[in-house]
């Protein structure tokens, strides 16, 4: 559930809180107490619903875990992790997630940014367009996955009809969801389509913040629209770009419902992504220990990738604790 939230919202992971002025220790203690009172209900709920199951999940990952509490679980240390590292199907699912990321992250960034630039200037019906672009974002994954499954149907889908009968770019119907690469492509197209509105809204917000006088100064210097965009707007929203990219990458690794409902990970497991594979290990094969280990492997990869993004593109500003 934390993941769902991560993929739907723009938060600013900007952390460094303004350091309050030093005060005397009694006042400080009283302040601490007040803070705890405000903090406690939410943090307690978080610990109960997120942190505790997470810790427990880690514990499970160290066991050959018996599903039923009355049967004994066997402690096997890091064996599940070793098995995961050697599991070809798991790495195939990671590779598929990689393909999904390569399509959806640049896709959402570029199209989202383009739409934001388009709507940044004053024009009629701006509000309407903003809503239209955002509608896929607010629609549930279940609904859009089913709609796209319908569109990408092999023998009677609208997409094939367009490609074969209208545009004549394909000779025969493409078995979209029945083969690996087309299947990943269809799922990725859905990912881009559903996500661009979100990226757009955030970019739009950031672009609004780019000071007009900078742009005007550049215009006076004879810079064209493209130059102004590349040299003024883009650097100005660099942090937002980074922030959006990181969240898109995390969201991309979490792709799940669309694959589950559109291809089911098939054919022959070739469109499996980490979460569908993990889900199958747990609920089809009752291998909860292994599923938990896989999920932590995935989490490690996500954290490494996010961290290196900050290191590579974040400059020297401290962005996340």
């Amino acid at each position: 559930m934390a993941a769902t939230a991560t993929t739907t919202g723009p938060a600013s992971p900007e952390v460094a809180a303004p350091a309050p002025a030093p005060r005397d220790s009694r006042k400080r203690r009283r302040e601490s107490l007040t803070a705890y009172v405000f903090l406690l209900p939410g943090f307690a709920l978080f610990c109960l619903i997120v942190a505790y199951p997470l810790a427990r999940s880690f514990q499970i990952s160290l066991y050959d875990w018996a599903v039923v509490p009355t049967q004994a679980s066997r402690f096997i240390g890091l064996e599940n992790y070793a098995r995961g590292l050697a599991d070809e199907q798991f790495w195939l699912s990671m590779a598929n997630a990689g393909v999904y990321l390569l399509v959806t992250v640049p896709g959402q960034l570029v199209i989202g940014l383009a739409l934001a630039v388009l709507l940044d200037a004053k024009m009629p019906a701006r509000g309407l367009f903003r809503v239209l672009f955002y509608v896929p974002v607010i629609t549930s994954w279940v609904v859009v996955a089913l709609v796209f499954k319908y569109l990408f149907n092999t023998d009677a889908g609208v997409v094939n009809w367009l490609l074969v009968d209208v545009l004549h770019v394909a000779d025969a119907n493409i078995a979209w969801l029945q083969s690996r690469w087309p299947g990943l492509m269809a799922v990725s197209i859905l990912g881009v389509w559903k996500g661009v509105g979100w990226a757009m809204v955030i970019f739009l917000a950031a672009l609004t913040g780019v000071r007009d006088d900078l742009k005007e100064a550049a215009a006076l210097d004879g810079a064209g629209a493209w130059d102004r965009f590349v040299h003024v707007s883009l650097p100005a929203i660099r942090k937002t770009l980074l922030f959006v990219t990181v969240l898109l990458v995390i969201g991309g690794f979490n792709v799940f419902i669309s694959v589950l409902l559109m291809t089911g990970g098939g054919p022959a497991g070739s469109t499996e992504v980490p979460l569908t594979y993990m889900y199958r290990q747990a609920f089809d094969f009752l291998d909860f220990g292994y599923a938990a280990a896989l999920s932590f492997l995935l989490a490690i990869v996500i954290m490494l990738v996010s961290y290196s993004q900050f290191r590579l593109f974040g400059g020297d500003e401290k962005e996340v604790d």
Binding site: T154, L177, Q178, M262, G264, P267
Partner: peptide, 21 residues
């Protein structure tokens, strides 16, 4: 047909049988 490979989006067996495919 490719249906045997799993995945999604193929014409289901009942529909295919009924329309002769």
């Amino acid at each position: 047909p490719k249906l045997i490979l799993g995945g999604g989006g193929g014409t289901n067996t009942f529909e295919g049988l009924a329309n002769g495919m």
